[in-house]
Write a protein that binds this DNA or RNA. Structure first.
Length: 272
DNA sequence: AGTGTATCCTGCAGGC
DNA sequence: TGCCTGCAGGATACAC
């Protein structure tokens, strides 16, 4: 579910409220997210520690605690974090509670149970984090780097952009919006992109992500912010989910095709 | 290196 | 109303 802008929104909101607060007790109502790590080890690794900071890497949430420990979370499709007064009983889909020393609860909820929570000595100790590619909103993401990297791959642009080892944090929705912004077809082989087109793509990646973050992400079904509010970027989508509706630019009906068993939306006229 | 498939899990919409 | 199928914003492992 959440892609970079959604995870960034959640990280910022948690960073505003968590640092300084301690974990008194960890309660696990369903242990799928722990991926086989024994419940007791997970609890011991967190209880008595204090949150220092919350950051994002790709679609991962990184919680830094002291004494030194990292809680590394991936929300996958339907995971979310909520900070709430302690409920009497865990509501449906609450999987893990981090009970804080001031009585509040940081609740990890996950309808589909695909999200993961890992305990690590450092973020890079989590293989998925170590494999992340360049952060698209940081200085290392340049036009030249993008043009070079694209030239080495025959994969369709959509597939290339979705790959977390290339650019960290892009998913189905934002790849669709980015390719529309760049005027490039998701079906194009990466290596056929010219330097000029790569420059447009580079700009679209940054512009779409920054706008989506400014709108606190896209809520289509499950995504919610820490305070349960929705994002707003769904009101600004140009192609995602708009199959059959006219392109905002040229009125051509937006096409839906399936790539890698995922829906791809694009304008066959504006995107070449 | 690339593609295609299956898998984890639950809920919902649409067709019949 | 109820059953069945396919689909959902993610990522990985596997075969070819």
């Amino acid at each position: 579910m959440p892609e970079l802008p959604e995870v960034e929104t959640i990280a910022r909101e948690l960073q505003a409220v968590l640092p300084g607060r301690g974990v008194r007790r960890v309660r696990i109502f369903r242990k799928d997210a722990l991926q086989g790590v024994p419940v007791a080890r997970f609890q011991k690794g967190l209880e008595g520690r204090r949150f220092q900071a919350v950051r994002r890497r790709g679609k991962y949430l990184l919680f830094h605690l002291k004494p030194e420990a990292w809680l590394v979370a991936h929300l996958r499709m339907t995971g979310k974090f909520a900070l709430t007064p302690r409920p009497d009983a865990p509501p449906l889909h609450h999987r893990v509670w981090f009970e804080l020393d001031d009585g509040a609860v940081l609740a990890f909820q996950d309808l589909r149970c695909l999200g993961t929570l890992e305990l690590a000595g450092a973020p890079e100790a989590v293989p998925g984090v170590a494999a992340m590619g360049v952060e698209p909103l940081e200085p290392g993401f340049t036009r030249d780097w993008l043009a070079q990297a694209l030239s080495r791959s025959r994969a369709p642009l959509k597939h290339w952009l979705m790959h977390q080892g290339h650019i960290a944090g892009l998913g189905n929705i934002y790849v669709a919006e980015i390719l529309f912004g760049a005027g490039l077809s998701p079906l194009r082989a990466a290596a056929t992109v010219t330097r000029e087109e790569a420059a447009r793509l580079h700009q679209a990646v940054r512009r779409v992500l920054m706008r989506a973050i400014a709108k606190n992400g896209t809520t289509i079904s499950d995504y919610r912010r820490v305070d349960d509010k929705t994002g707003d970027f769904q009101n600004f989508l140009r192609v995602y989910g708009r199959a059959g509706q006219p392109c905002h630019t040229c009125r051509t009906p937006i096409q839906r095709v399936v790539q890698q068993q995922r829906s791809t939306f694009y304008c066959p006229t504006c995107q070449r």
